[in-house]
Design a protein around this nucleic acid. Structure first.
Length: 471
RNA sequence: GGCGCGGUACCCAAGCGGCUAAGGGAACUGUCUGCAAAACAGUCAUUCGGCGGUUCGAAUCCGCCCCGCGCCUCCA
């Protein structure tokens, strides 16, 4: 079954054919660690985590590189403001980023690469661009001359002339063209700097991605990703630098995720309408947040709201609960009895799930299939509760697919909520059962209430009493 | 002004030329129950922003209009 990926470069869904059979090289623009990661970051990295996981599931060997911009203006400003070093700030927030990603179920890339650890390579690149006639020096800065790169604008579908006539263009009279961008910035007082042929300074923002991606993935590779807001100018500039130097097509598939909105507006630092992941996790299980993020296609905008997080909490809870419930029913089976011919329905659903992901990583569609599997499981538990073999398969599918989506199955269920007092709970349930048998409903209800206060919900089912924590 | 994205039920959302317009949440009804709860089941868009067009056939393609958003400056 072929995989289709929407490519920003061609503005079409294309069949995915990697440059080298069975392996995929992907690069995703990472964070500038100068503050806590917010939901928008969460969406981006969950998106590429799903892409990575599904590619691996499909049999590819994936090399996934993500950069860390640990030197830039924002970092310098923050460091100066707090009288700390850039390095301290970067380390602090990068550690925090790793922690929060781990909670969100985002697997580590094959490798995180830091800008400050690749300065000599960047200097070499800037020298190369200068030698090739694509760059010019002004004082201690070096700029890339966009007019020299004929394909400039091919990713963002812009033409230089049209942009120049646009209203908002920063004015720096020293530059030959307003869209020329810095490859190297001469150091100002008190800024971290490195030696270079142009004097002490630091790299411009865009060059790091070109240098590090090609270093680890080669001069041409399969997938480059990032948020929609990076298309221009960041990715456009990256293409210009890289292809100017290597004279080769650089990236085959450009993948961009949509924004997280708040009241229809983009969540962003500058608007101040952002919610950090750390804060959201105080209220919601990180898996709920992941589930929420996955229930909208990665390219569409997603509106952040409490109501939708609550809906996600319910939905994920039902998925996890079903897995528990199937186990509970299986445990009560004394004489397994196979009901023949029902497996084909599960096979069909299995296929639907994979079809969805093959269609531009449609996790939202795939989650829809998960709930159809839940409905099928309920049907079997109702009509053929002794079919252990089939129930086992259904449960395995459900668990496997949730894991493929990076959704941890265990959550605030019985074992998590009360790992220490489950014996006590079982004892109380037995007491209640005895009371019910004696028609001492007052006592039975009392016990039920006591448990509810501890956050335990009882379920009187055909197979006996089942309990779980409040989700 | 240029470029791009989107408008599907009460809310969210998949579907992007043809089987009954997925699925989740809410609501309502029912099953189970000593009663509840939980769980489960059923109901919930003859219709996809509006108007035209193409087609045997359109939510899906084309044109125009209305509305919302994003990028064009750092931003996932």
């Amino acid at each position: 079954m072929p995989l289709f990926i929407y490519n920003t470069l061609t503005q079409k869904k294309e069949e995915f054919v990697p440059l080298h059979p069975n392996e995929v090289k992907m690069y995703v623009c990472g964070v500038t660690p100068y503050d806590e990661a917010h939901l928008g970051h969460g969406r981006a990295y969950v998106t590429f985590d799903i892409i990575r996981r599904f590619l691996e599931y499909s049999g590819y060997k994936v090399t996934y590189i993500q950069n860390v911009t640990d030197i830039d203006d924002k970092l310098i400003n923050k460091a100066n403001g707090e009288r700390r070093t850039v390095n301290e700030i970067a380390q602090q927030y990068f550690d925090s980023y790793l922690e929060v990603m781990e909670k969100l179920g985002v697997l580590n890339p094959t490798r995180y690469v830091k800008a400050t650890e690749h300065i000599p390579e960047m200097v070499k690149w800037v020298k190369g661009l200068e030698a090739g006639g694509y760059a010019y020096q002004i004082d201690h800065d070096v700029y890339f001359e966009v007019g020299k790169f004929k394909d400039y604008g091919k990713l963002s579908k812009r033409k230089l002339d049209e942009m120049r006539s646009g209203a908002r263009v920063e004015v720096d009279s020293r530059k030959k063209d307003p869209f020329d961008f810095a490859l190297w910035k001469g150091a100002k007082e008190g800024e971290p700097s490195w030696d270079s042929p142009w004097g002490k300074g630091r790299p411009g923002w865009h060059i790091e991605c070109s240098v590090m991606s090609t270093k680890y993935l080669g001069e041409s590779f399969d997938i480059h990703g990032g948020g929609l807001d990076l298309i221009f100018p960041h990715h456009e500039n990256e293409i210009a630098q890289t292809e100017a130097l290597t004279c080769k097509p650089w990236v085959k598939y450009w993948v961009h995720n949509g924004f997280v909105n708040v009241d229809k507006q983009k969540m962003s630092k500058s608007l101040g309408n952002f919610f950090t992941l750390k804060d959201i996790f105080k209220k919601y299980d990180p898996m709920v947040v992941r589930f929420f993020l996955l229930s909208t296609h990665y390219r569409s905008p997603i509106d952040f709201s409490d109501d939708q997080l609550k809906a996600a909490e319910k939905g994920l809870g039902r998925l996890r609960d079903t897995i528990d419930r199937i186990q509970f029913v299986m445990d009560s089976i004394e004489k397994p009895k196979e009901s023949h011919g029902l497996d084909s329905k599960l096979l069909e659903l299995d296929e639907d799930f994979i079809i969805a992901l093959n269609d531009d990583f449609n996790a939202a569609g795939a989650i829809g299939v998960l709930f159809e599997i839940v409905a099928f499981a309920n049907k079997i538990m109702e009509e053929n509760p002794s079919d252990k073999a089939l129930l086992l398969k259904i449960r395995k599918s459900l668990i496997g697919y949730m894991e493929l989506l990076g959704l941890r199955v265990e959550g605030r269920d019985r074992s998590k909520t009360c790992p220490d007092n489950s014996e006590e709970i079982e004892k109380m349930i037995a007491e209640r059962e005895a009371a019910r048998k004696n028609k001492d409903f007052k006592k039975a209800d009392q016990i039920r209430n006591d448990l509810l206060k501890k956050g335990i919900i009882l379920e009187d089912t055909a197979q006996g009493v089942r309990w779980k924590g409040i989700t």
